[in-house]
Amino acid sequence: MLDLPAPALFGQLLLGAINGAFYALLSLGLAVIFGLLHVVNFAHGAQYALGAFCAYLLLKFAGVPYWGALILSPLIVGLLGSAFERLFLRRLYDVDNIYQLLLTFSLALIIEGTLRALFGSSGFPYENPLPGGINLGFMFMPYYRAWVVAVSIVLCVATWLVIEKTKLGSYLRAATERPDLVRTFGINVPLMVTVTYGAGAALAAFAGVLAAPIYQVNPGMGANLLIIVFAVVVIGGMGSLMGSVVAGFGLGLLEGLTKLVYPTASSTVIFVVMALVLLLRPAGLAGREVH
């Protein structure tokens, strides 16, 4: 095995798990939106950044602390997302689906450009709401990072449970297959679509708030992350929610390990894995392609 000091190894694994948590949350939100709308939400990264900025502004101007922002910020971004779907995206369901993709892409430009124009590119720090940590013997575990990993796992599992095990989830699954037929049962699918897009955006915003104390709050935080998440999605496949979550965490850990072994490759390792997957299993690991 590699001859590495244990604290460094676990430290990098923890960093990897944190990154993985964000990959998982974002690819989960993408998958939820894609499942029902068949839209790749290119605005997902911008909505993530918007979530972080919401938390920052809520704290600065309304004195709302982190824990309040964790609820309020996803709510605000979710409502904005729903409004976007209802007012604009909906008009494009009848035309080729590249236009839906392009509309969300242009939304990303608008959000990111506006954040940059208003707040500059340098970014702001956000105070850690859970300072301190605990020495586990083999490594030091900061409380906040433990919280991020834990809450992400809980949220992913909860989302999965809602979709796989509840009545609402059965509506969602059925509407993914045959929206028209589900409507003839008296279920308001267009409303579900609006809510689902909002929920996906809210999930991105939640991840943004989680990220604020770890990374800085800055306008570009979402764009770069989103492209990595796309690679994660290509690797894991958007067919299964669990697939995207597992791929998210797994690739985060892999990235952490790479940073330890060969730091130069750490920013590209996920893309390399993607290229390998495409060569060896063109349909992706989950192997289910939705057209």
Binding site: V40, N97, V234
Partner: peptide
């Protein structure tokens, strides 16, 4: 060679990801 096997939306995401790499 890497991207052509996948269609539509996946093609867009793969080309974007490779460009980012």
């Amino acid at each position: 060679l890497l991207a052509i096997g996948r269609q539509g939306i996946y093609f867009a995401m793969i080309t974007l990801a490779l460009a980012q790499m």
